Computed example of a mutant assay.
Amino acid sequence: MTTFVLVPGMCHGGWCFEQLTEQLRAHGHNVYPLTLTGLGERSHLLRTGVNLDIHVQDVAGVLVSENIRNAVLVGHSYGGMVITGAADRNPDRVDSLVYLDAVVPGHGDSCWSLVSDQERQWYLDVVETGDAVRPLPFFDPRATPHPLASVLQPLQLATDLTHIRRNVYVYAAGWKGQSPFTPLYQRLREDPAWTTHALDAEHNLMRDAPHDLLKILREIGEPS
């Protein structure tokens, strides 16, 4: 039995992992689908001042309060920032990291610095208060504005993350147009420290390739 902590991308909540959560639990795993502060059912919390540190603490809080050890942290898109920070701050509680078509930051990187100019243009389309990024028109109706500060704040790392047993990248190869993650995937697939997968799906892998994703995660949960 493995414990998975699932972290969504921008504007999304734990609801985006609903099918994956059910499937993993049906196979006997513990699963915690998170909604980050200021989003989804937590959107009533003040967005101003909600930054990357707070989102990292959201994950750390679950690891500590639930006394989770050997967690597999799974981050989609922006969630790659969050799981990296959480693994750095909780080295005794995190076993593996899984990036689902996500950013993979190093020390001093922000989501803003790692994405394409097209993505940055989206970030600048903020709500009237100027504190949050609007959901894109094709997002699920449950999507909510995303705290802007969280994508601008650089990630500060205190460790080199060598304690992580497995680093896994799952690339969505079915983007309509150029994927902003292609150069990253091409680099990581040549790195022996990483295991990479390419799925014929669009960016929302949880929706478009649920069975392939389930298989990958179940394999990660097995002892090496």
Results as ranks from 00 to 15, higher is better:
residue 152 L to A: 13
residue 173 A to L: 05
residue 145 P to F: 01
residue 130 G to E: 11
residue 128 E to Q: 13
residue 131 D to M: 09
residue 141 P to W: 04
residue 121 Q to W: 06
residue 177 G to F: 10
residue 128 E to F: 01
residue 157 L to S: 09
residue 169 Y to A: 06
residue 168 V to G: 07
residue 169 Y to G: 02
residue 155 L to N: 05
residue 133 V to I: 14
residue 176 K to R: 07
residue 178 Q to Y: 00
residue 172 A to V: 07
residue 176 K to N: 05
residue 139 F to L: 09
residue 146 H to L: 02
residue 162 T to S: 13
residue 151 V to G: 03
residue 121 Q to V: 13
residue 129 T to P: 01
residue 121 Q to I: 02
residue 157 L to C: 11
residue 137 P to F: 14
residue 161 L to R: 06
residue 175 W to M: 05
residue 169 Y to Q: 06
residue 173 A to P: 04
residue 174 G to F: 07
residue 155 L to E: 11
residue 136 L to W: 13
residue 156 Q to A: 08
residue 162 T to N: 08
residue 163 H to N: 15
residue 122 W to H: 14
residue 147 P to G: 09
residue 137 P to A: 01
residue 148 L to M: 03
residue 151 V to P: 01
residue 150 S to N: 08
residue 159 T to L: 00
residue 170 V to S: 08
residue 141 P to M: 04
residue 150 S to Q: 09
residue 166 R to A: 15
residue 133 V to Q: 05
residue 163 H to L: 11
residue 150 S to L: 08
residue 165 R to D: 14
residue 176 K to P: 02
residue 165 R to G: 04
residue 164 I to F: 00
residue 168 V to Q: 04
residue 139 F to Y: 08
residue 149 A to V: 05
residue 160 D to H: 10
residue 166 R to C: 09
residue 176 K to T: 01
residue 132 A to D: 00
residue 126 V to S: 06
residue 170 V to F: 10
residue 160 D to P: 12
residue 158 A to Q: 15
residue 124 L to E: 15
residue 121 Q to K: 11
residue 147 P to W: 11
residue 134 R to E: 11
residue 181 F to M: 10
residue 180 P to F: 00
residue 155 L to D: 08
residue 134 R to Q: 14
residue 152 L to F: 00
residue 175 W to A: 08
residue 134 R to Y: 05
residue 153 Q to S: 12
residue 148 L to K: 04
residue 128 E to R: 04
residue 169 Y to P: 08
residue 143 A to W: 03
residue 128 E to Y: 01
residue 137 P to K: 13
residue 176 K to H: 09
residue 177 G to T: 06
residue 125 D to G: 00
residue 128 E to G: 00
residue 153 Q to K: 10
residue 125 D to E: 11
residue 171 Y to A: 09
residue 121 Q to S: 11
residue 125 D to M: 00
residue 123 Y to W: 06
residue 125 D to W: 02
residue 131 D to Q: 09
residue 173 A to V: 03
residue 143 A to Q: 05
residue 167 N to W: 09
residue 141 P to F: 07
residue 127 V to I: 08
residue 151 V to C: 10
residue 172 A to Q: 00
residue 131 D to N: 15
residue 165 R to H: 10
residue 167 N to H: 13
residue 168 V to E: 07
residue 162 T to F: 10
residue 123 Y to L: 06
residue 124 L to T: 12
residue 127 V to E: 14
residue 166 R to W: 00
residue 140 D to R: 15
residue 167 N to Q: 15
residue 147 P to F: 12
residue 157 L to Y: 03
residue 140 D to N: 15
residue 147 P to T: 14
residue 147 P to C: 07
residue 147 P to S: 13
residue 146 H to S: 03
residue 137 P to W: 14
residue 151 V to D: 02
residue 181 F to P: 08
residue 124 L to F: 00
residue 146 H to E: 11
residue 141 P to V: 03
residue 144 T to D: 03
residue 137 P to C: 09
residue 140 D to T: 13
residue 123 Y to D: 04
residue 140 D to M: 14
residue 129 T to D: 15
residue 157 L to A: 05
